[in-house]
């Protein structure tokens, strides 16, 4: 079971990213979050969410959810279009195992775009 994101519900509000940052640092900060909104392609209105798991990178693109095995050998060689060490300094999602109420990102998402599957 892991955290998933419905990209079409997502509004890029970053509440999940902020929550995860708090889960890591016990303060408000965004550098340690393992759930990150990608929002640099502003003029194209192209945005989504990336989640780093132990083995996988879960990428919620508008056109669909993609799960990439970190470091996996892609067919035809090469490593695909994700970094071999994505978000190297960020720890993988631990499903907020220390919280009785479960994943904080899911709890704060205002549009229920974050779910567990």
């Amino acid at each position: 079971m892991g955290v998933k994101i419905d990209p079409l519900k997502c509004t890029a509000c970053m509440a999940c990213e902020l929550a995860c940052g708090y889960h890591r640092d016990d303060a408000f900060a965004l550098l340690s979050s393992c759930i990150v909104v990608y929002r640099t392609r502003d003029k194209k209105d192209y945005f989504g969410v990336i989640l780093k798991e132990e083995e996988d990178l879960v990428i919620a693109r508008p056109e669909g959810l993609e799960v990439k095995r970190i470091g996996a050998v892609e067919e035809g060689g090469g490593g695909g279009d994700a970094s071999a060490k994505p978000m190297l300094l960020r720890e993988a999602c631990d499903l907020c195992e220390d919280r009785d109420d479960g994943p904080l990102c899911k709890q704060v998402c205002p549009v229920d775009a974050v779910y567990l599957d």
């Binding site: 550098l31 640099t40 990336i50 490593g79 279009d81 994700a82 970094s83 978000m87 190297l88």
Partner: peptide, 10 residues
């Protein structure tokens, strides 16, 4: 560096 942390370059 932060902006490049997920770039696929090697």
């Amino acid at each position: 560096a932060l902006g490049l942390e997920d770039h696929p370059a090697r």
